[in-house]
Amino acid sequence: MITIQNLKKSFRTEEVETLALNNVNLKVDDGEFVAIMGPSGCGKSTLLNIIGMLDNPTEGSYNFAGNEVSGLKESQRTELRKGNLGFVFQSFNLIDELTVFENVELPLIYLNISKSERKQRVTEVLERMKMAHRANHFPQQLSGGQQQRVAISRAVITKPKLILADEPTGNLDSKNGLEVMNLLTELNQDGTTIVMVTHSDHDSHFAHRVVHLFDGQIVTQNQNRPVGAAI
């Protein structure tokens, strides 16, 4: 699904140029669950953002499901992202002014899906995530764990091929964190590819493979278990 070759990303300010990613080569197969780990500032999130097409690499190639992404314009990236990708963030990133239902519904609106189908799909997903009873609440009225469940609902509503999770348990206590990881694992078992950035060794064990990043380079890759095997 993902093939990254010799990828570089540098940030330039007036005086300093920082190389955030240096010659990264990474391949992620369909249905795989990959965790990216490393110390703060090693380039994990930058890599995730490039995989999520929120950012463009400075050099190198990034192929997503047969499409070369590097060099695409923002509008083209948005088009490719639509329906194919779902995001789960550490800080949930729900829109405060929209209810749980409306937050989850939003990606479908952008895909121009009919109202009746939207309603059906959102209801299904919320029931699956055990959030149906909270459909009309606003994000501020929910606990952190609940908010992340809503965020995951929103990420999966379009049935994406790939979910990108950026420290999805970072703002949660261990109980809620475990619930979220179980949800992601479930999704992965249903066939969704997952790339997750995490600091947590515990969380990384849910992945098939752990990629270690240091100073912008991949230093090691450990296989926890083969793809398809249970934890």
Binding site: E79, F87, I95, Y110
Partner: peptide, 16 residues
Amino acid sequence: AKEVGIRKSIGGQRSQ
């Protein structure tokens, strides 16, 4: 800004 970011990340076009 956050709202704009979220909307864009889940598929909102600039024109939208």
